[in-house]
């Protein structure tokens, strides 16, 4: 008789512990700092003008300005002939790894689709780097790398486990010239796709940072798409190795 009561208690413990344990150990949807706060620039940046090279102007107000007309600063000039700037692919990223969650993926340079959204490599094993923005290792701005969380035809993608990443985890990006740029995760957030703050996530100015984007949140079968984007932001640590 007592044996049965013990069995009842044991079964109840399992029935409660299983979902509770899952709930307690599942990766949090957001962690660390807000992803849009990293590298944010206070005011919107003004367009910059430059010729083929870019020494800056040094305005010096003239002393002999006439009273009624504005003073005229001195300006510098340089040749305006077209220049061939040559290839610049040496700093393109070629692979990405996040050891803590066993992520390793080849990186392709990508642009935008006809509808203006970012191109994601067709193969879910590869991730895309937004080639119009700065490459990883740049002095400023967000290097954006995005990949499929999964696809109907190919199954789980390179970024499938991205939601398990935690603050402090290391992210390594290897460049075409062999250098590796090392980052450390500082924030993770799940944001509704329709309101994704792309202007801030893709900002080409502000502190240097790496922004990883994939899909997340509930799946909407009618749209064959997830409702949210999972965004992870990481800051560079040390120098390029």
């Amino acid at each position: 008789m007592r044996r049965w009561w013990i069995l009842v208690a044991a079964c109840l413990v399992v029935a409660v512990a299983a979902p509770l344990g899952w709930w307690l150990t599942r990766p949090s949807a957001s962690e660390g700092v807000a992803v849009t706060s990293v590298g944010a620039v206070p005011s919107s940046s003004a367009p910059s003008s430059a010729g083929p090279s870019s020494p800056s102007a040094s305005p010096e107000p003239s002393a002999s300005a006439s009273a009624s007309r504005p003073a005229v600063p001195k300006v510098t000039a340089r040749p305006a002939a077209p220049e061939d700037e040559g290839p610049e692919a040496a700093t393109n990223p070629v692979s990405l790894s996040i050891p803590a969650i066993d992520v390793r993926a080849a990186v392709d340079p990508v642009g935008v689709q006809k509808d203006g959204s970012m191109v994601i490599p067709r193969s879910v094993d590869r991730v895309g780097w937004y080639r119009y923005g700065p490459p990883p290792g740049s002095a400023a701005g967000a290097a954006v790398v995005a990949g499929h969380v999964d696809s109907k035809a190919q199954g789980p993608g390179a970024m499938f486990r991205l939601r398990e990443v935690g603050v402090g985890d290391r992210v390594d990006v290897r460049l075409a010239d062999g250098r590796t740029v090392r980052y450390q995760v500082v924030g993770k957030e799940t944001l509704v796709k329709k309101r994704l703050p792309t202007e801030r996530l893709f900002a080409r100015d502000g502190a240097p940072r790496l922004v990883l984007i994939t899909c997340g949140g509930p799946f909407v079968p009618e749209l064959s798409s997830y409702r949210d984007n999972l965004v992870v932001v990481a800051e560079p640590v040390g120098g390029a190795a």
């Binding site: 935008v112 995005a146 999964d150 993608g157 796709k193 994704l196």
Partner: peptide, 21 residues
């Protein structure tokens, strides 16, 4: 040639999952 940079805008979105797994 004269260039004026910084006139870019960000992509409209990041469609990165169709599997529902």
């Amino acid at each position: 040639v004269q260039t004026i940079s910084g006139l870019h805008s960000a992509p409209g979105g990041v469609p990165s999952g169709t599997g529902g797994l």
